[in-house]
């Protein structure tokens, strides 16, 4: 048994973290909100492309284990672009289906971004293609007929698109299932990253903010909230990494493990958001302070996770029958 990272994995993660620290600070996440300067968001995609992230699976030869901590970093930075969707979901699916539309070169060159539909299409306005994963089949459509939608997380640039018609990209249920699991794993990894970011912001704040003559972070009530939030995150993260391993090895228990990761990460990120806002006090309830950028993203990503379906999948793996079934 081994459960650690290679030196290469650590180095890549640190490189991505450094890149995002400079290319995706809170000001760039803000710029992705309506009325912001989209050119800084475009510059961020160029920087990610320069690192080879869109072609991570094919060109760099990374698997889910290599990828998962990179995706966690994109969550930590709240990257307002479809990184998971393009790099971890669409690119490998296109490669596996022979890329009938010839989209992969554009993805690798950074010209083509793929968003994934799920009710809304997050980042649809910043994408050139939309991937629809629907049961046993997948479709690829353009943004024709897309309608903008206003979202709580204003950086989502979300749209609604018509249901796809015509030829599916693939009707291979296993490939589509794999793509859906990669999307779910990406969501779980981002949620862990977002949770860590909110916790870091809060720890920084409560060490500085003084009331009653002392830092508010010295009060037990605040400490205990933050300790609980940390424990949830720290115990969700290994489940996310284990799911990546199960997915990379196409192991039979991968569905159960991805769903476990999603459920633990969703709960951990929601608790981190709630704790972060509470421990900040009134400043956390403003749009001037940065915390809301990460909290709203966490809620948006969590909302894409169908908790009931994931619970049912773990229950089925454990052979537990529900009364309604």
């Amino acid at each position: 048994m081994r459960f650690g990272w290679t030196a290469d994995q650590v180095a890549l993660r640190e490189a991505v973290r450094d890149l995002l620290a400079s290319a995706c600070p809170p000001s760039v996440v803000r710029a992705a909100w309506p009325g912001g300067d989209e050119s800084s968001v475009e510059a961020l995609w160029s920087a990610l492309t320069g690192m080879g992230i869109p072609g991570a699976v094919g060109e760099l030869g990374l698997d889910e284990v290599d990828l998962v901590s990179l995706l966690e970093e994109t969550g930590y930075a709240a990257v307002p672009l479809p990184v998971v969707e393009t790099a971890a979901v669409a690119a490998p699916l296109l490669a596996a289906t022979g890329d009938p539309g010839g989209h992969l070169p554009g993805i690798l060159a950074g010209r083509t971004r793929v968003a994934v539909a799920g009710g809304l299409v997050p980042y649809g306005r910043r994408a050139t293609l939309v991937l629809h994963l629907d049961g046993p089949a997948a479709w690829l459509s353009t943004l024709d007929g897309a309608v903008d939608e206003t979202t709580v997380d204003g950086s989502l640039a979300a749209v609604r698109v018509p249901k796809p018609s015509g030829e599916p990209l693939t009707e291979d249920a296993e490939l589509v299932g794999l793509a859906a699991d990669r999307l779910a794993l990406g969501a779980a990894a981002q949620l862990v990253g977002l949770g860590r970011r909110m916790l870091d912001l809060t720890v920084g704040y409560v060490r500085e903010r003084r009331q009653f003559g002392v830092p508010v972070g010295s009060f037990q009530a605040v400490k205990h909230h933050l300790a609980d939030a940390l424990v949830r995150l720290e115990f969700a993260a290994p489940a996310v990494y284990a799911a990546a391993w199960a997915l990379a090895g196409r192991r039979p228990e991968r569905g159960r493990d991805v769903s476990t990761a999603v459920l633990l990460a969703t709960e951990a990120a929601r608790e981190a958001a709630r704790t972060a806002i509470q421990c900040h006090g009134a400043i956390g309830y403003t749009v001037e302070y940065d915390l809301h950028l990460y909290a709203k993203r966490a809620w948006a990503v969590a909302a894409t996770c169908d908790t009931d379906a994931h619970l049912a999948r773990v229950a089925e793996a454990l052979d537990l029958k529900g009364a309604a079934a």
Partner: peptide, 17 residues
């Protein structure tokens, strides 16, 4: 334990109420 985690893992200040 929560106090220990907050102070020694998260680095929050000691003391307080």
């Amino acid at each position: 334990q929560r106090t220990i985690v907050a102070e020694r893992v998260l680095g929050l200040p000691r003391g307080g109420g």
